[in-house]
């Protein structure tokens, strides 16, 4: 990382070679510790001098949490596996094409070569006020700069606003929730496995975090069960340009369709709330229905129920409706 010639505040750097060493370091140094994955989010924070951790633990040398392997009838992806590896892996491509597609849509080839799947799901909010270092609620202050009558909030949320109106920026997160992935989290007390859906939290739970990871926790792996392998997938991301951009809205869906009838469905939308939103009412409305324009239209309408747009983002309501509609049609126009 030393090639970036910019002034970062000084920190003590540790590069452990095993998860156990990393966990020991995390418990020894406590709250001021920053966990560095691929560095694609971290280095921006450091260089902008907004986040100034005293200790940085670089996971780059831990081989045991890198790579993709078959596990039982599913697949386990190490948290430090790069997005390029995820997008090009033959197991992922053939059985979990939804995730391969989503990973391929992240940023640019250079960023995908360096950025990791663990980092992509753990990255912080991209609200430009927050990234600018404004003392907002999320940064520990007592106001939101993005939700005022004059604020520029084209990229902000439609749902679940609670003091903060930022959105989840990840492309892989909706795909992982649609695939019912399990996230493996380790800390000094042991290991626990949570549903992808529960990994992401809104500001109501804790405004300073985007995920359930607390200081001392380490995301080590993501497991994909066989349940949704080879289902009918749909992923689409809408952004201002085709590379190096975060989603305005993205959608990931997995469906099991038999004879034109939807047996099971999972539909998840990103970019509309602090966390990726799994649309359970839409899934319920789809179960047992035939794949048709009418079903798609109904799903789209159901999806946007309760959306509360801000001054500059009401287009996201139409965008979300249309993307959910397309995910049912399953055919990219």
């Amino acid at each position: 990382m030393a090639i970036i010639q910019d002034m970062m505040p000084a920190f003590e750097l540790f590069q452990p070679a095993s998860v156990n060493d990393a966990l020991a370091l995390l418990s020894r140094h406590g709250k001021d510790t920053w966990v560095l994955g691929g560095g694609m989010d971290s280095l921006d924070w450091f260089k902008d001098r907004v986040k100034k951790p005293k200790v940085v633990i670089d996971l780059g040398n831990i081989k045991e949490i890198e790579g993709i392997r078959q596990q039982g009838d599913g697949v386990e992806i190490g948290a430090m596996t790069t997005l390029t590896q995820v997008a090009t892996n033959s197991l992922i491509q053939s059985r979990y094409g939804l995730l391969a597609q989503a990973a391929r849509k992240v940023a640019t080839p250079q960023i995908r070569n360096q950025g990791t799947i663990g980092g992509n799901v753990s990255q912080d909010a991209r609200c430009w006020y927050y990234r600018d270092g404004m003392p907002c609620y999320r940064a520990g202050g007592n106001t939101c700069y993005a939700d005022t009558p004059t604020a520029m909030n084209r990229e902000h949320c439609l749902f679940e606003a609670d003091r903060c109106v930022a959105v989840t920026p990840s492309d892989t997160a909706p795909a992982l929730i649609a695939l019912d992935a399990k996230f493996v989290i380790r800390n000094s007390k042991g290991e626990r496995v949570v549903d992808a859906e529960d990994f992401f939290i809104g500001p109501k739970v804790d405004i300073k975090r985007m995920t359930i990871l607390k200081p001392g926790d380490l995301l080590t792996a993501i497991r994909l069960p066989a349940t949704w392998a080879g289902a009918r997938f749909y992923f689409e991301k809408v952004s201002d340009r085709e590379a190096w951009d975060f989603p305005l809205v993205n959608v990931a869906s997995a469906m099991i369709v038999e004879g034109g009838t939807i047996k099971q469905a999972r539909v998840v939308v990103g970019g509309v709330a602090n966390r990726p939103l799994r649309l359970k009412p839409v899934e319920d409305s789809l179960r047992g229905e035939r794949v048709s324009e009418e079903t798609a239209e109904l799903a789209g309408q159901t999806a946007i129920w309760g959306a509360k747009p801000l001054n500059h983002n009401h287009y996201k309501v139409s965008l979300m409706k249309n993307l959910v509609k397309r995910s049912v049609r399953g055919v990219k126009v």
Binding site: L248, H312, Y315
Partner: peptide
């Protein structure tokens, strides 16, 4: 002319500016 403006126009919704 960004995609949000085009979408608002296509959906016959008012613009946010």
């Amino acid at each position: 002319v960004t995609c949000d403006m085009i979408l608002n126009a296509a959906e016959k919704k008012p613009q946010s500016y």
